[in-house]
């Protein structure tokens, strides 16, 4: 049985093709002006990668902020639901999930049998999400993917007071003027995001089996700051950005 999950995010649209519960194809593209069109493109690319024809697909489920825009999906699932299903697939014992996107973040607590117990989310303030790091990379005149490696080489903790993206940009510029090493600034940026994300985790209650999903999971510097903040091991799936799309594809299997 072949199912497809589509995660229509603020930044990227992801598609995952499942064949009998195994990932056989995936695709990630920038979300354009028209979320439905982007979803269609990601869908075609993922099918091509999986070498599957559209006729073979039994069910398509969409998730993410643009889930209602995806007209060709038979069913939708909330971001919370798809995150829980996807994370459990990688880490069967996970009970606390941190799901970070470009423009939103959430912490989800699961019961022992994988049901959603509690969740806290932020989608209204850019400071607690992945794009915060990108904005600061721009202020540092560094590529976003360099932020993680830079941060891993920090030597000194520098306090960053600004909690808002707009103010933090000016603060980073003044830190540069004060000749603060880029490594230390990168660490301070990740510590800032980490503080805001950790507080959501504490609100739902921190348990032992922690997983981080979503694109920012690729940023090792951010993961390290979160580990130091929460004093816990954090599991990150190999392709963290596809986890929610995978969760949607798993749900498609259930309803097919």
């Amino acid at each position: 049985m072949i199912t497809v999950g589509i995660d229509s995010g603020n930044r990227n649209t992801k598609a995952v093709v499942l064949k009998d519960g195994q990932v056989v194809g995936k695709a990630l593209i920038l979300t354009g002006f028209d979320a439905n069109e982007s979803a269609g493109q990601a869908y075609e690319l993922a099918l091509k990668a999986a070498q599957v024809s559209p006729e073979e697909v039994v069910a398509v489920v969409s998730t993410g902020v643009g889930r209602n825009e995806v007209k060709f999906a038979q069913e939708i699932i909330t971001e919370i639901g798809s995150a829980a299903k996807g994370a459990r697939y990688f880490v069967p014992t996970v009970n606390t999930i941190i799901d970070l996107g470009a423009e939103e973040g959430r912490a989800i607590k699961l019961t022992a049998d994988g049901k959603i117990a509690d969740f806290a989310s932020n989608e209204k303030c850019a400071a607690g999400a992945g794009s915060f790091v990108e904005s600061m990379a721009r202020a540092l005149q560094t590529a976003p993917e360099e932020m993680g490696p830079l941060s891993m080489k920090y030597t000194k903790e520098v306090p960053m007071n600004a909690q808002c993206v707009v103010f933090a940009e000016s603060e980073v510029v003044s830190l540069i003027h004060q000749k603060t090493p880029k490594e230390d600034i990168a660490r301070a940026v990740h510590d800032g995001v980490s503080n805001r994300v950790s507080s959501m985790v504490r609100r739902v209650g921190l348990l032992d089996d922690l997983a981080l999903i979503g694109g920012p999971g690729r940023n090792r510097g951010l993961v390290q700051s979160l580990k130091d903040d929460l004093q816990k091991e954090i599991k990150v799936p190999e392709d963290p950005d596809y986890v929610s799309a995978l969760g949607a594809a798993l749900y498609a299997m259930e309803i097919a």
Binding site: F33, K124, A126, S131, S135, V165, V166
Partner: peptide, 17 residues
């Protein structure tokens, strides 16, 4: 609709488009 300046900026860019 967005309170956050960063999100409002994205929204405004969309409106101009």
């Amino acid at each position: 609709s967005s309170t956050c300046v960063v999100f409002a900026k994205t929204e405004a860019t969309g409106l101009l488009r």
